[in-house]
Design a protein around this nucleic acid. Structure first.
Lengths: 258, 258
DNA sequence: CGCATATTTGATAGATTTCAATTTATGTGG
DNA sequence: CCACATAAATTGAAATCTATCAAATATGCG
């Protein structure tokens, strides 16, 4: 990826997949000032307690947001891929920062809080789109709570794979495939199981022909079968919305006060 | 509580504890149309798949937001007390609804989506406050992921108790006490352990003198001791902010475009 | 080639679940 | 205010999943 210059298009694309924005608003987002950062695999590029003054937008690679225990154990609380803004919430909660780690080599665009606040104040529909983006984040996190409490190890991993497949827009049909650079230790950090047990569970999923996780890639022979096994229901991800389903509340209701 | 008429003051108070709102904006919030509902303990008052057209604001009692598994098992993904709006996110994600259950007898004020969208469109600082409220919700949910994966049963319960103590503004010092109407089965549904094991863990916490959970009330003899045991760090809850720490981004940055 | 990281395997220990019953509260109608 | 039905809390024993400990084998990279 060296030498390539990225813009915010992936981020804007993700926002507009769920929110209705005008051309002017899209252009304003694309004109935001950015600082491009290349991050090597396994590198922490945001550390806790440092008060950040910018948001990190992932434009290439995979990033993990995590919490750290006193004994050094890590729990990954979210995965982020191209287009995601793992800490967009810091625009309104500047003290609530989480460490971010690159799980593959990654490219990040840093966008200053100041510029984001300005654009959110000037274009209410953009503030709304940011709010919606954060709300989907909550829905995903709530599903993780369910995942790690109510499913055994194989189902946990399967559910995680289903989530990522949908977010990569790779779900459905046969021979689904998408990048998945997590080590088995990191899969354990995301699903709450030890790396030893991840190893056995991954092997078990392969034996069952449900999913193959290796070489930083996931292959799913039969999507429906894995989704059923994992009890996966994609609705919470708000993916594949039709244009008519994309909300824009800021002017839809501005007239009537009731 | 029969016969008592509630208003949205608890909700407004929670919003203004983290967001800076003008008197006009506060009054606009208090003038929102509401429908008061009394809900008996253990009753589901929002069920999944029903497209809701209103937000539920808790003004009395305790409410649980949960997900249901195919085998009927429930996972509680959040607890909500007076002032909380468990499904405020449905203002921007109308399809992302979760079942809500009263964990004690509770009083709910229903606020129509239409009115909330109107007020959010008219007062950007209110939209911002809503966004912030949802973002704190995410922070809490992310902590739950950590709680249920990285702590043993006693610590999980302890951490949950610490969270609720802070939200009740009852934390600190000795002999902390606050309402906690969950059955042991529901504590298990919140922390990912069986009711049998909750029973033993609760007893264990009592033996250690760390916390006493009984008769729908929690008593904590020594706050610092329990917080240390649970590895609890309250910062993520954004409680007890000084007035100067409460953000208002919508006009703070509206001038400079940079 | 050789160190560091990642994956794999085996054996054992432990925490938690499951299953089954019993006891103890709580609430309601007569 | 008691009797009954129901819900909640409690206890015991056995079964499981997962963690832990320890080591061997791959893999990647300078």
């Amino acid at each position: 990826m060296t030498g390539v210059n990225f813009d915010l298009q992936p981020f804007v694309g993700l926002l507009t997949s769920r929110s209705r924005l005008s051309k002017i608003e899209e252009d304003a987002l694309l004109a935001l000032p950015t600082q491009q950062i290349e991050v090597n695999r396994h590198k922490d590029f945001v550390t806790p307690d440092q008060t950040v003054d910018h948001v990190s937008v992932v434009v290439d690679g995979v990033v993990g947001r995590f919490s750290q225990m006193s004994d050094g154990e890590r729990q990954i609380t979210a995965l982020h891929i191209t287009g995601d803004a793992p800490d967009l919430h810091t625009v309104v909660l500047h003290t609530d920062t989480y460490p971010l780690q690159a799980l593959s080599n990654a490219t990040i665009l840093r966008v200053p809080h100041g510029a984001l606040r300005t654009i959110a104040a000037r274009y209410p529909a953009i503030a709304e789109a940011f709010w919606r983006h954060c709300s989907v984040d909550t829905a995903i996190t709530a599903q993780w709570v369910v995942n790690v409490t109510r499913r055994d190890s194989r189902m946990r991993i399967s559910h995680l794979l289903c989530e990522m497949a949908v977010r990569y827009e790779a779900d459905g049909g046969t021979d689904v495939s998408f990048p998945f650079p997590l080590t088995q230790t990191q899969i354990g950090e995301a699903t709450g199981i030890t790396s030893v047990h991840v190893n056995r569970s991954v092997k078990g999923l392969a034996e069952q022909g449900l999913a193959f996780v290796a070489d930083q890639v996931v292959r799913i022979p039969d999507w429906d079968r894995l989704a059923e096994y994992a009890e996966f229901d994609a609705r919470y991800l708000q993916a594949k919305l039709q244009p008519g389903e994309r909300l824009r509340i800021v002017d839809q209701a501005s007239a009537k006060v009731r």
